[in-house]
Amino acid sequence: MPGHDEEYEEFARARTPVLLRSAWLLCGDAHLAEDLVQETLAKVYVRWHAAFRSPIENPVAYAQTTLTRTFLSSRRRRSSTERPTGTLPERPVDDGTDRAATRLALLAALDGLAPKDRTVLVLRYLEDLSVEETADRMGCSPGAVRSRSLRALDRIRPLLGSSFSADTERHPS
């Protein structure tokens, strides 16, 4: 139909940077992140052009959900035996300007996390979803989200500075 491709490409171009940030945190690698985003866009493309289904009500949420599920699905296929590493990263330069060091330290911290823990972290703290929304998107219970969230936060605690404590998560305002 006229304009359908253009609408999709406009949407994809606008959302790709956001998707890429989530994908980078999930994959921990720029190339894998680009691949994940492309796979996500491909699935959105198919759904966008599906003749027998209703139009996507919320393309932004649909794309983010597709990204998350594609990541989890790919990780299930690749390995089901991932184990957290036992070492925590060094705290990066604390002047707030050395973004590259922060990124490296963050990736190092996330590297030991199970895929679902990483996903919880991204959904809750990058995409700013509630526990319930995160549970819904991941297809698990709110309790599982809370527990994974605590585990993920524990991994990055050394990077969070003195303002963070476990109580911040246990008793969110």
Binding site: D5, Y8, E9, A12, R13, T16, P17, L20, R21, W24, L25, A30, E34, V37, Q38, E39, T40, L41, A42, V44, Y45, G96, R99, A100, T102, R103, L106, L121, V122, Y125, L126, I156, L159, L160
Partner: peptide
């Protein structure tokens, strides 16, 4: 932390957004 770390990521990594979109569309 997550937002600081990912802010401007596509620029810093010199990501070609158009290339990703073209690749996603082709796939």
């Amino acid at each position: 932390l997550l937002r600081d770390a990912t802010d401007g990521l596509e620029h810093d990594l010199a990501v070609d957004v158009d290339r990703i979109v073209r690749g996603g569309t082709a796939r």
